[in-house]
Design a protein around this nucleic acid. Structure first.
Length: 484
RNA sequence: GGCGGCAUAGCCAAGUGGUAAGGCAGAGGACUGCAAAUCCUUUAUUCCUCGGUUCAAAUCCGAGUGCCGCCUCCA
């Protein structure tokens, strides 16, 4: 049974969708003003795994996200880059879509853009004014926090708490300093026409208007970073529930931040790594794997050193997959299995339920990865037994293991493709290498290590790695380009 | 100042009442001419400190210490 941690109650709750079999989820996207950084990617990967797991469990998932393409920062950046705000927003929205492809993140079913949903936003603001939840003054429209009884229920604070420690600059127009803008006046020629004059939508209204438009007044999951809990999501709840009179979201999920030396990575602080610069140093899958080794709600400390460790650890999984493929491409030597085969089969079968149990517990990817490591440990022990030989029975068991391993890895968005090697080749290369290896073997038989090593070293230089294993000498063409 | 979170081996990290997953690094061994890879064994009497509840606590309660996040744009 799936349980998810809901920020609304700070508790793990049983997951039940509004409509059986269908999950409607909305994840706050980013302001498209620059290239994405690792923090954005963590969030995207996290909700990608959540989506994949829900689909794996048989749900249909409608996954919606957004691009905030209207705000001051975009205008400013556009001036710096010498293009229009719309062009700049497009540029970085497309860059983000490219980035998520690199990380094997499935694209949302739709990315809603603020600039394309102004009518809905204006309609929503008008209704909030009619219902006396909002007021217009001097071209701005504010939401009145005092009019919404439950204000503060998500972030767990009361209006009194917040006023006591408020650091918000006093705005004379507001009835309460905590009132927030639904519509903001801007200079002529820069905004959209509205009943209150020319302006822009406030920051929070977009997500409410667009998510409800696409997913209905009440939907299942709303996700984003912890740093959005207040004020962004708190305000979304207020304006959405005031507008519809219905519960806005069943489960609020929040992912932890990516930190650098303990401090939150953020654009405004300038302490961030863009996903593009990190991709120059490490394969995307290593970064993805690393980010999934920590539970999504906890902060994770980022460093290249940690990525190196993650790479070693991930290689353990990749090696096993590779070895397994080699074993399975060998010849079957006998038709009977034995007791060990039986034991192996049983251990293997437990892995699926262990894996599900981990993800059922609030999407615990760290534990799920632990299960994958246990799993490859079993496979390694089995295929490395000194008396191991392929028979009809264990062939099908191993084939099943291979499928199961790939199936589970895919839920985490990890792919393990078999690298090119002696199994796949076109033309002359293979016979030539086999010939060289035969010569090398002769040299080895005569204890002529010098010559044997010379062949191995020279082959390595041209990109062919030779290894002597218990199954004999193997070789593969070492890929320099990364695989996804 | 207000609200919230976290503290587990050298490092990273699971684990919310039943006696400490997993990874990285380290040590010993097997295999190997050497490499590489792999396998086996091993590394926390103990989970920040102090007190309490319980037959039983890393897990619950109280106090303290330290770190972090939010309260302003933020994934």
């Amino acid at each position: 049974m799936l349980k998810v941690y809901n920020t609304l109650n700070n508790k793990k709750e049983k997951f039940e969708t509004v409509e059986p079999g269908l999950v409607r989820m909305y994840v706050c996207g980013l302001t498209v003003q620059n290239y994405s950084h690792i923090g954005h990617i963590r969030s995207a990967i996290n909700y990608d795994v959540i989506r994949r797991y829900l689909e794996y469990q048989g749900y249909e998932v409608e996954y919606i996200s957004n691009f905030t393409d209207i705000n001051e920062k975009i205008v400013k950046r556009a001036e710096e880059e010498g293009m229009t705000a719309a062009e700049l927003a497009d540029k970085y929205a497309n860059a983000f879509l490219e980035d998520i492809r690199s990380f094997n993140i499935k694209a949302a079913d739709q990315y809603l853009r603020v600039s394309e949903n102004i009518d809905e936003i204006i309609e929503m603001v008008s209704t909030l004014i009619e219902k006396n939840y909002a007021y217009a003054i001097n071209g701005d429209v504010y939401f009145s926090v005092d009019s919404f009884e439950d204000y503060g229920k998500l972030s767990g604070r009361s209006l009194e708490d917040m006023q006591a420690g408020a650091r918000i600059a006093v705005n004379e127009d507001k009835r309460n300093p905590l009132d927030f803008a639904l519509w903001k006046k801007v200079e002529e020629g820069e905004g959209w026409d509205s009943p209150w004059g020319e302006g822009w939508p406030g920051w929070h209204i977009e997500c409410s208007a667009m998510s409800m438009k696409r997913l209905g007044a009440t939907f299942d999951i709303h996700g984003g970073g912890v740093d959005l809990i207040f004020p962004h999501h708190e305000n979304e709840i207020a304006q959405s529930e005031a507008y519809s009179g219905q519960k806005f979201v069943k489960y609020w999920l929040h992912n932890g931040t990516v930190n650098l030396s303990g401090e939150k990575m953020s654009k405004s602080q300038g302490n961030f790594f863009t996903s593009r610069e990190v991709l120059k140093e490490f394969p995307a899958q290593v970064i993805r794997y690393f980010l999934l080794t920590r539970h999504y709600r906890s902060p994770i400390d980022f460093s290249y050193e940690k990525l190196e460790e993650a790479e070693t650890s991930l290689n353990r999984l990749a090696n096993t997959r590779q070895e397994l493929a080699k074993v399975l491409s060998g010849d079957i030597e006998s038709s009977s299995g034995d007791q060990l085969d039986k034991e192996f089969l049983e251990k293997t079968k437990e892995k699926r339920s262990e894996f599900k149990k981990a993800l059922d517990d609030d999407f615990n990817t760290a534990e799920a990865i632990g299960v994958l490591h246990d799993f490859v440990g079993e496979i390694n022990s089995y295929i490395n037994r000194s008396d191991f030989s392929l028979n009809e029975k264990n062939f099908s068991i191993l084939e099943e293991s291979e499928e199961l391993f790939l199936e589970l890895a895919a839920v985490l968005g990890l792919k393990f493709s078999v690298e090119k090697g002696k199994t796949k080749d076109d033309g002359l290369v293979e016979p030539l290498i086999e010939l060289l290896l035969e010569l090398r073997q002769k040299a080895r038989d005569n204890n002529n290590w010098e010559e044997a090593d010379l062949i191995r070293d020279q082959l390595k230089e041209i990109g062919i790695e030779v290894t002597d294993t218990q199954r004999g000498t193997e070789w593969e063409i070492v890929q320099t380009e990364e695989e996804n």
